[in-house]
């Protein structure tokens, strides 16, 4: 597990670097090298570190530890074919981390980011809808059993395309530079992460690298099925490139628009679930 965890961190950081590079190239900028995020994390780890005087000290440090812990657990659940509901629970815990990160800092920018993280809770509802649709088709929420089901019936990406679309938006909303990334919009400096610098930021970068790896992996596994490790990485990279493409051409939405778009997606999925229910 420790080997997988270290690999996920390095691959996740490389994915972040590739994401930045692709966005830059699509915008006709040279962009940073793809290993920039690895250097970035190391740079933060060696910077001077302290806790702001106005911060809630215990909470300020605890959110970093919790962020690394929950995504490490999500990685294990994903790789061992555990329950999709547990992944959903971890995703909700991450929302608490985002909120706590901003509120603990004592900075107004961080607090605005934390409040926006509550607004962007609408992005969790498409995930719930996705889980419901997957259960409707497969009759299980165990990732290993979903993979087996796809081996017999075909990939859910085709059979339950609207659910895949909803999950795609969920993952997109968690990508860096996402049009839904309202919690770290530039008008809030770095949003809820503004005051976390030095080792705290390095820890957060590690947690977010694992998060990106887990979300891409889970998407491919539950909508495409079991793949060999190399093909899996290629599939995750293709998925990431599609996110980079959207992020490069979409401006960050205002909080109101971000919620509106996500509610529209939820509505489409709700109609889809109703149609499935009636058809069944």
């Amino acid at each position: 597990m420790i080997v997988e965890l270290l690999a996920a961190i390095i691959i996740g950081l490389l994915f972040h670097g590739i994401h930045r590079k692709v966005i830059a190239r699509l915008q006709r900028r040279p962009g940073p090298p793809v290993w920039q995020e690895i250097l970035h994390t190391m740079k933060f780890a060696f910077k001077e570190t302290w806790i702001p005087k106005t911060a809630s000290q215990e909470m300020f440090v605890a959110v970093v530890l919790v962020a690394i812990a929950i995504w490490s657990l999500a990685l294990y659940i994903g790789l061992s074919g555990g329950s999709l509901l547990l992944i959903f629970a971890i995703y909700l815990l991450h929302k608490i981390v985002e909120h706590g990160m901003g509120l603990s800092s004592g900075s107004p920018y961080g607090k605005f980011g934390a409040i926006r993280s509550v607004i962007s809770a609408s992005s969790e509802i498409p995930l719930l809808a996705t889980v419901a649709v997957i259960y409707f088709f497969t009759g299980t929420l165990q990732i290993s059993e979903i993979v087996t089901w796809q081996g017999v019936h075909g990939p859910l990406l085709i059979l339950a395309f609207p659910a895949a679309l909803a999950m795609y938006v969920v993952v997109l909303s968690k990508m860096p530079y996402s049009p839904f990334g309202i919690i770290e919009a530039k008008e809030l400096v770095s949003g809820n992460r503004t005051e976390h610098f030095g080792v705290w930021r390095a820890g957060l970068e590690v947690a977010f690298a694992i998060k990106t790896f887990v979300l891409l992996y889970i998407f491919v596994v539950i909508f495409v099925g079991a793949l060999s490790p190399v093909v899996m990485l290629i599939a995750m990279l293709i998925l990431l490139l599609s996110f980079s493409f959207i992020c490069s051409f979409s401006a960050m939405l205002s909080p109101y628009d971000a919620v509106t778009v996500q509610v529209m997606i939820i509505s489409i999925i709700a109609v889809y679930i109703l149609v499935l229910g009636v058809a069944a």
Binding site: I2, F44, F46, L65, A67, S72, G198, V199, G203
Partner: peptide, 9 residues
């Protein structure tokens, strides 16, 4: 692991 990462930094 989280304690290790933070203590290392």
């Amino acid at each position: 692991f989280p304690f290790f990462i933070i203590a290392l930094g």
